[in-house]
Structures are given as structure tokens and as C-alpha cells.
Simulated assay, not measured.
Amino acid sequence: MSIDLPDAIDAYFSSDKTGNAQALSELFTQDATVVDEGNSYTGRDAIRQWMANASTQYTYTVEPFDIAEDGQRTIVTSHLVGNFPGSPVDLRYFFVLRGDKIAGLEIVP
């Protein structure tokens, strides 16, 4: 199923598919924070390193299938399949956008 995502979020999932950590980090504001698996990563350098580690540690595909709004956040639910513990799993991505950049992202089951 295809859903209509805001440009910054669509670019996030496109960059995630290619594993390009540098391109992905540039989609975030300078002071953005990502929370994933209980860990926080603040700033583009930390976000780039987070993505670089994830893309070398695991092989996976992610397919967004639902989008909703929750106040200031855009929630994208995606199906994630790969060689990681607990695969497959549906994850919720809570995006906070600032202009055309991602200012915050929290990923939870």
C-alpha cells in the first residue's frame, strides 16, 4: 500500500532504504534528537553515526503503511523485516517537523 508522506518524511524513508547515513542526517535540523531502542542521539553527527551503525549491523526493509497526526507529531506506522531480533515488527515513527527538516524522531514498537 502506498501512502502520501510529507516530503521530509518521504526523504527519510528513501534515505533509509539506500543506507546513506550522511544523506539521512542532512534531513534533520542541527539540534534534532532521535530516540531509538531506548537510546537518544542529538545532533546531525550523532544521528549520522546511529544510522551508519544500524545499516551495517542489520539488513532490513521498511514499508510505511499508515500515517496519522497527533498534535505536533506525524506518526508513521511501518512494517520492518530483517535479520534483527523480533523480526518482523510494526514500528511507529513519531516525527516532529520544523519547516522542511525533521526536528525529532522517536521509534517505538
Rank of each mutant, 00 (worst) to 15 (best):
residue 108 V to F: 06
residue 84 F to A: 05
residue 47 I to T: 04
residue 63 E to R: 11
residue 108 V to Y: 04
residue 69 E to P: 00
residue 99 G to F: 10
residue 51 M to I: 05
residue 86 G to W: 06
residue 58 Y to I: 09
residue 58 Y to E: 06
residue 6 P to G: 05
residue 52 A to G: 08
residue 96 V to A: 03
residue 39 N to Q: 11
residue 98 R to C: 06
residue 65 F to R: 11
residue 75 I to C: 04
residue 107 I to N: 00
residue 103 A to T: 06
residue 7 D to T: 15
residue 92 R to D: 15
residue 38 G to P: 01
residue 51 M to A: 13
residue 104 G to P: 03
residue 25 S to H: 00
residue 100 D to L: 12
residue 21 A to H: 06
residue 96 V to D: 11
residue 44 R to P: 04
residue 5 L to F: 08
residue 46 A to M: 08
residue 39 N to T: 09
residue 109 P to K: 13
residue 62 V to D: 01
residue 103 A to V: 07
residue 59 T to P: 02
residue 1 M to N: 08
residue 64 P to F: 13
residue 105 L to H: 02
residue 23 A to R: 06
residue 61 T to Y: 00
residue 98 R to G: 03
residue 33 T to Q: 14
residue 6 P to N: 02
residue 60 Y to R: 03
residue 54 A to S: 13
residue 42 T to Y: 06
residue 24 L to P: 00
residue 18 T to E: 13
residue 45 D to I: 12
residue 10 D to E: 15
residue 103 A to E: 12
residue 100 D to A: 14
residue 24 L to F: 02
residue 98 R to S: 15
residue 65 F to C: 08
residue 90 D to F: 07
residue 73 R to V: 08
residue 15 S to L: 12
residue 27 L to A: 07
residue 14 S to A: 15
residue 78 S to Y: 05
residue 25 S to I: 05
residue 38 G to N: 00
residue 66 D to W: 10
residue 89 V to R: 11
residue 95 F to D: 02
residue 104 G to M: 07
residue 31 D to R: 12
residue 49 Q to E: 15
residue 54 A to W: 13
residue 70 D to A: 15
residue 66 D to Q: 14
residue 92 R to M: 13
residue 47 I to G: 01
residue 38 G to K: 01
residue 31 D to V: 06
residue 54 A to M: 14
residue 45 D to E: 15
residue 21 A to W: 03
residue 60 Y to F: 15
residue 84 F to R: 03
residue 60 Y to A: 07
residue 42 T to H: 03
residue 46 A to T: 05
residue 74 T to E: 06
residue 21 A to D: 07
residue 108 V to R: 15
residue 81 V to R: 14
residue 47 I to A: 04
residue 9 I to M: 05
residue 96 V to S: 09
residue 86 G to M: 09
residue 70 D to P: 00
residue 74 T to W: 03
residue 87 S to C: 05
residue 103 A to G: 14
residue 105 L to V: 10
residue 102 I to S: 02
residue 43 G to C: 09
residue 32 A to V: 06
residue 12 Y to D: 01
residue 105 L to N: 03
residue 20 N to Q: 08
residue 33 T to F: 10
residue 1 M to F: 11
residue 56 T to K: 15
residue 61 T to A: 04
residue 102 I to W: 04
residue 83 N to A: 07
residue 17 K to I: 08
residue 79 H to A: 13
residue 52 A to D: 13
residue 22 Q to Y: 10
residue 50 W to Y: 09
residue 71 G to S: 06
residue 48 R to K: 09
residue 28 F to V: 08
residue 15 S to P: 00
residue 11 A to S: 15
residue 82 G to V: 07
residue 6 P to I: 09
residue 23 A to D: 13
residue 80 L to H: 00
residue 13 F to K: 02
residue 23 A to S: 10
residue 11 A to R: 15
residue 18 T to G: 05
residue 40 S to L: 09
residue 42 T to S: 14
residue 38 G to D: 01
residue 6 P to Q: 02
residue 45 D to G: 01
residue 82 G to D: 02
residue 57 Q to D: 10
residue 29 T to L: 02
residue 5 L to M: 11
residue 106 E to K: 10
residue 81 V to P: 00
residue 29 T to W: 01
residue 4 D to G: 04
